[in-house]
Amino acid sequence: MPISQKEILIKTFKSNKTSVVGLLMAFGVVTIALIAPWISPYDPIAQDMNIQHAPPSWAHPFGADSYGRDQFSRILWGSRVSLVVGILSVLFAMAAGIPLGMVGGYKGGRIDNLVLRFIDIFMSFPIVILGLLVLAIMGPGLIKIVIAIGVALTPRIARLARGSTLSIKGKEYIEAARAVGQNDGKILFVHVLPNIFGEILVMGTLWVATAIIVEASLSFIGLGVRPPTPSWGAMIRDGLDQLTNAPWLSLFPGLAIFTSVFSFNLIADGLRDISDPKLRG
């Protein structure tokens, strides 16, 4: 099948309406994150106790929280934390996991065994729990959350990269490159990487969705970015005390998390046809 990864991607997108819808939604969420400062009607950290727990209205479409801060503006700003953490932590995991998996899969033998052990050990922690452990040690902060989630995703991406590398290791072009005496590093980065990257990128969108959920979970627990910086998970937690009399405080930030995660999952669902459905975990 001499079809390039690019053609497969374009074809899949054309034939799959859900991934196009997902792409549009994700584009919307990213746009909101980029232009949040210009479109939010209020300062997300400005307090006005006159409107404490105000219900949704024209002036404050999503109501106001316990400090009298406009929920709508906070949700718009909160998209920044979610997306930055979601995307950066997956990039982090790719930067660490892809070389690890490629080397293991390509070299085989003892090195591969070592890589497999590493994957086994770190996969035995649920993502949220490994993230929680790392953050409990390092303390809160945006970069630290990226590292914590990135570390938790690394073995999962390494496993994927290892599997893909194994499946193309015996292909003629790899043999040919070896036959003409190219060194391993060059083979890995010039021949293996471009051929496995498409599949990893597809799964990457799925992992961005997971990372957004994990970030929300950690900030819900109280290990997210420091207040008063708005983040969706922390907003839900703050609203939980008021669930009976001001349910909108938890419901809207949750809807925001759901919408962004859903959009990335829609993209991945369309692209999934070209990758193995069993790899999610």
């Binding site: 839900i236 939980l240 995660v261 859903f262 999952n265």
Partner: peptide, 26 residues
């Protein structure tokens, strides 16, 4: 079924829990 299952995997469990709690308990 597929749309619903996508909704399911996109839903953080704590958010779903709050929704169910609000609806069925409160």
């Amino acid at each position: 079924g597929r749309i619903l299952s996508l909704v399911g995997i996109s839903m953080p469990e704590f958010y779903l829990g709050i929704l169910l709690m609000y609806l069925l308990a409160i």
